[in-house]
Amino acid sequence: MPLFIDKLAISSPDFVNLERIPENFSADGGNDTPGIAISGAPEGTVEFALIVNDPDAPLANGFTHWVVYGIPADASTLDLSAEGVRVAPNGAGAAVYYGPQPPAGHGQHHYFFHLYALSTPVVGEPTREGFLASYADSIIEVARTVGTFSRD
């Protein structure tokens, strides 16, 4: 299997990679949606998908906090109001951003913001698992940034 790493990059103006996500972006602190910056789209990208997952959650596949499809190939930021952009069900079944809310005392959790450059558009609003199963062959490149959060 080839590696999908080159110039694609994702970052957030709201937190630093591998550092704590501010409280206002947590489920208990306001559930504000973090800003997302995108750069380095590879040739052949027709759209991006963004999936935020907490693999430290005590569930078989972790917990999916955010699923966004239809992000335009020329986007430099995530604009949820852009034509074609749609939010799919998170781990709780709701089509919204659900900020960090690890179990109290469970230690530090890692929130992986994966950005996928795709060669084909995503049809519908599949879950994270459905997307990974159905669109693996359409992934041109993957980038990620990681935030952390804990509740003591």
Rank of each mutant, 00 (worst) to 15 (best):
L50T: 08
L50K: 10
L50V: 05
L50N: 05
L50Y: 08
L50E: 04
I51Y: 11
I51T: 14
I51Q: 04
I51S: 03
V52Q: 11
V52P: 08
V52I: 15
N53E: 14
N53R: 15
D54H: 11
D54Y: 08
D54N: 14
D54W: 12
P55C: 07
P55F: 07
P55L: 10
D56G: 13
D56H: 12
A57F: 08
A57N: 03
A57D: 05
A57Q: 02
L59A: 15
L59S: 14
A60T: 15
A60H: 15
A60C: 13
N61P: 09
N61C: 06
G62L: 09
G62E: 05
G62Y: 09
G62Q: 00
G62W: 06
F63N: 06
F63C: 03
F63G: 02
F63Q: 01
T64A: 01
H65V: 02
H65I: 01
H65N: 05
H65R: 03
W66R: 07
W66S: 05
V68P: 02
V68M: 00
V68E: 00
V68G: 01
Y69N: 04
Y69F: 15
Y69M: 09
Y69C: 00
G70W: 07
G70E: 09
P72S: 06
P72A: 01
D74P: 07
D74E: 06
A75V: 11
A75T: 09
S76W: 02
S76V: 12
T77F: 06
T77C: 09
L78F: 06
L78E: 03
L78K: 02
L78I: 00
D79V: 07
D79K: 09
L80W: 05
L80Y: 06
L80P: 11
L80I: 07
S81M: 03
S81E: 06
S81C: 01
S81W: 00
A82L: 09
E83Y: 04
E83F: 02
E83K: 07
E83I: 08
E83V: 06
G84F: 10
G84A: 13
V85G: 00
V85I: 09
R86G: 02
R86Y: 12
R86Q: 13
V87H: 06
V87G: 03
V87M: 15
A88H: 14
A88C: 13
A88T: 15
P89S: 13
P89N: 11
P89D: 13
N90S: 08
N90V: 04
N90I: 01
A92E: 15
G93E: 14
